[in-house]
Amino acid sequence: MNFIEAENLKFSYDGTNNVVDIPKLFIEKGKHTAILGHNGSGKSTLAKLLSGILLPTSGKVVVNSYDTTDESKFYDIRKSCGMVFQNPDNQIVASVVEEDVAFAPENLGIIPVRIREIVEECLFAVNMTEYSRHSTYKLSGGQKQRVAIAGILAMQPECVFFDEATAMLDPIGRKEIMSAVDRLNKELGITVVSITHYMNEAVEADRVIVMNKGEIVMDGDPVSVFSMPEELQGYGLALPQVTELFYHLEKDGYKLPRGVLHTMQAADAIENYVKGKNDARS
């Protein structure tokens, strides 16, 4: 089932140059989709179009069966499709963690007792329960971003967009966010769309979309996308470390499988390769 459907989607900021130009795009429900692209490839704009923050210049975006141009459904779309932004400092409204998480349900007019429950559930989901009464500004970047995620989860959305949500974080913070994202997707069954330029994050997705100059140039599961290193590099993207290593080894004449994405997989592949060679020799 498709959660978001876009058709003949075109968008331009100035009226002449199309920043996004996509004939057809579906985002499947319950899946984790990663959108990759170098700076200025239109990936953030696409995310804003798909979540209804921006309205298309022409064409149509349907989110959860609501057309994004339908003003009467504005808050229904917001509610079903949350977005976590890049800078955690700029999306936290309140000074105390639990009050910030409560912001969205308060806006939606939910009764106080239920808000309290929602806040506790959401803080638990991002593993921030013990910080519920802390000041937001004293938290680390990763913790702030997890509060921001909890704030979005509190709307009980069916889909969450991550617009380079890890770009401003240190490696530890990035790991925290990635595990939180994984949890949302796998345990809570929330559709996740993450916009990123960290390849290691895209590797974890079910589907990878690569954008270049506003168009979708590659679309498939991570294994098939990362099996085409030359093409990816042509779009200004780096490869995941392991894939890059294998790519160079292959160039040097080693016959290793393509589309290896994880360190452990790579270790196994190399082990098999070495074993195979030894067997052939003996």
Binding site: K79, V93, A104, E106, L108, G109, P112, M155
Partner: peptide
Amino acid sequence: AMECRCYMGGEGRTRM
């Protein structure tokens, strides 16, 4: 970010 979290002003807002 506030708009994304359904902020619509004071009308119909509740408090935790």
